[in-house]
Computed example of a mutant assay.
Amino acid sequence: MRAITAVSTLTVLVAGAAAPASAIVGGTNAPQTYAGIGSLQLDHNGHKDWGACSAHAFGTNGHGDTKFIALNAHCGTVMPPEAQVQAMSLQGKANFAQFRSWVENAGLADAPADPASHAGEGLKSTPVDPASYRFVYGNVNRFEGQSVGIKRFIPPKDWNWGEPDSQGRVWDVMVAELAHPIHVEGALVAPVLPWLPVRELGWGMTNPDPATWTGPIGPLLKQTDVRVTAKQQCAGAGIGAAEVCLGVAPDGGGTCAGDSGGGGVQRLGRIWVLVATASRGPEQRCGTANVYTEIWPYLGWIVKTMHTVAPDIRVETAAPDAIRSSAAQYGQPAPDAQTAYALAG
């Protein structure tokens, strides 16, 4: 039995909550998929299963079906023109440099724009062409999972390739609508619980040296466990609000070019919950602390965006009692309802 709070509307969600990268360097092969994780793939460089990013199946219609995935915005938008970059702040330009290096290393720098989008009103970044992509899920081997096409990528209007908004948020998060519903147990969502280790997940590069990053990423899902660390450790990556810094694994490993879009899960009792997704690192090499986008602060936007397409979709969140129980088990103070469970717009 999963300890959850099910939410079917944004209003209920708030009341009920009264919470680029490649493959893992180091670590081990994952024995299972977690929190609906799958691989975002496309035909590229002569490979029909080129792995671009990770993503997580998200939401349910009450019958175990969903037509959405959540991932990072840099995985599904076209890199901005030079004039847009030059208009960024110094911090925005520095952040963009990191995003650009990860995207280029993943082989996605030449992704075509969505011909039907042309960046909607107020949108600062143009979605990539969904016809080129598919979501492969349900198997630790990304060559053997089930596959579904992407209907459209939906980035938030405030995503601007690293330029922080007025609250210091980078908005490296997005939703993608699938071509048809899939039957899968989607991600159970929770805020980052700093007393628990975070399991980083991803497919791809296993060597930290960028000079070796040629060809497609590997077939098997990898995992490694790290700790939440001080934000100063991710200062070189321009860490902002609603982001968390995850440290280096004991074996010196961690996320790398290709793990972007997913993969930060924590064990809450007997269940695994999605708390963050891989965004960027402070250097081109791997084996450093990395910035992850926290899911919880953006959950309100995610739910509202999905409901514009499918009003019956609900998101399942970890029950507050389960989080309080975990805090007590580890001798941590009970999370404050206003800070741990309130959605930040």
Rank of each mutant, 00 (worst) to 15 (best):
G258K: 11
A237Q: 11
G252P: 12
D225I: 13
D225C: 11
V244M: 02
A230I: 10
S260A: 06
A257W: 10
K222S: 07
A242W: 04
A230G: 13
C256D: 14
A235P: 04
I239H: 04
G218Q: 00
R227T: 14
Q223N: 03
A237W: 06
G253E: 08
P216M: 06
G261V: 09
D225F: 09
A249E: 03
P219W: 11
Q223M: 07
A249S: 06
A242L: 02
A242E: 04
G238W: 08
C234A: 04
Q233E: 09
D251I: 08
E243R: 00
T255E: 05
A257H: 10
A249T: 01
Q232D: 14
V228M: 03
D259S: 13
C256K: 05
S260K: 03
I239V: 11
G258H: 08
P219A: 14
K231Y: 05
K231G: 06
V226C: 06
A237C: 02
P216L: 05
P216R: 00
G261A: 14
P250W: 13
D259T: 13
K231F: 07
C234H: 05
G238I: 06
Q233K: 08
G252I: 10
A257M: 12
A235G: 02
A237R: 00
A241E: 07
K231L: 05
P219Q: 09
L246V: 11
P250G: 15
G236Y: 11
G252M: 12
G238D: 08
G252W: 10
D225Q: 15
C234W: 05
G236W: 14
P250A: 15
C256L: 12
L246D: 04
Q233S: 09
G238S: 12
G258E: 03
V226Q: 04
C234N: 03
Q233P: 02
V244E: 04
G261T: 09
D259N: 15
G261R: 10
L220K: 14
A235Y: 09
G253H: 03
A235L: 04
G236D: 01
E243V: 00
T224G: 13
Q223K: 03
G261C: 07
G253S: 13
K222C: 05
G254A: 15
G240C: 01
A257E: 01
V248P: 05
L246G: 02
D259F: 11
G236I: 10
G218W: 02
V228W: 09
A257N: 13
G240A: 10
A241N: 10
E243S: 00
C256P: 01
G236F: 06
A237V: 04
A257L: 14
T224M: 07
Q232A: 13
L221S: 15
G236S: 13
Q232M: 05
Q232V: 10
I217S: 03
P216N: 00
C256H: 10
I239D: 09
T255L: 01
K231E: 06
L220H: 15
G236H: 08
R227K: 12
L221I: 15
C245I: 10
L221P: 13
G218P: 00
D259R: 09
G236K: 12
D225S: 12
G218R: 00
G240V: 03
R227F: 04
G254D: 11
V244S: 02
G240L: 07
T229K: 11
L221V: 15
A237E: 00
A242P: 00
T229L: 11
Q233F: 02
G240P: 08
Q223V: 01
K222M: 06
D251L: 04
D225M: 14
A242F: 06
